[in-house]
Each structure stands twice: as C-alpha cells, then as structure tokens.
Simulated scan of single mutants.
Amino acid sequence: MKTCTSCCRRLPLARFQSAGNGKHKPTCLTCINDQRRLRSPLAPIRKDPVQVHINNAVHLWHGPVTRTALTPAV
C-alpha cells in the first residue's frame, strides 16, 4: 500500500505508474489521467439540425421563460 501525493488515498502499488527503475511514481494513475484530461482541449460540438428544429418548436410553443417569485396562496 502506498499513499498518493495528489489525492491522499492509500492504494495498492498496482495503481501507481512505474518509473522504469523499479520505483513507482508518487501520483496514482487516476490522478495522472485526470490531469491529462484537464490539459487536453475539448472537441467542438457539432450542431444537430433536427435538435435545433425541436428546440425552436418548443420555444415557440411555450414562449419565453419568465422568472417570477412564487407567492403563497392565502
């Protein structure tokens, strides 16, 4: 068992990446993968014309949303 320096969890040695010299790095693989995901940019989302049509139809049917305070019935 070893403690991750990033998330402070005690994990088995199999959850740590080997440094090549027989020692394991102090950060677990889960934290390393999270750091990689945070560095990589997100792919742009393509617009789906069918979903755009559905959204437009719903907004036309229901009208604009108004935010009013709810008053209790007396």
Rank of each mutant, 00 (worst) to 15 (best):
A14L: 03
A14V: 04
R15L: 04
R15H: 07
R15W: 02
F16L: 02
Q17I: 08
Q17G: 05
Q17M: 10
S18I: 02
S18N: 15
A19T: 06
N21L: 06
G22R: 05
K23R: 13
H24A: 09
K25G: 02
K25H: 03
T27S: 11
T27V: 14
T27M: 08
C28D: 03
C28H: 05
L29Y: 00
L29G: 04
T30S: 12
T30Y: 00
I32P: 02
I32G: 00
N33E: 12
N33Y: 10
N33F: 07
D34L: 10
Q35D: 13
L38C: 07
L38E: 11
R39F: 06
S40F: 03
S40T: 15
S40H: 11
S40D: 09
S40Y: 06
P41V: 01
L42D: 05
L42W: 04
L42C: 07
L42M: 11
L42V: 09
A43V: 10
A43D: 09
P44C: 06
P44V: 06
I45T: 13
I45C: 08
I45M: 11
R46K: 14
K47C: 03
D48M: 03
P49C: 01
P49S: 04
V50K: 11
V50S: 09
Q51G: 02
Q51I: 11
V52I: 11
H53I: 02
H53S: 12
H53F: 06
H53M: 08
H53Y: 02
H53C: 03
I54P: 01
I54M: 06
I54Y: 02
I54F: 05
N55H: 11
N55C: 06
N55T: 09
N56Q: 14
N56W: 06
N56M: 10
N56K: 13
N56I: 05
A57G: 07
V58R: 10
V58H: 05
H59S: 09
H59W: 03
H59P: 04
H59R: 14
W61M: 14
H62E: 13
H62K: 15
H62R: 15
H62M: 14
H62L: 15
G63N: 06
G63R: 08
P64V: 13
V65Y: 10
T66K: 14
T66H: 12
T66D: 09
R67A: 07
R67N: 08
T68N: 09
T68L: 12
A69D: 13
A69K: 15
A69G: 09
L70N: 08
L70G: 02
T71E: 10
P72F: 02
P72E: 06
P72N: 05
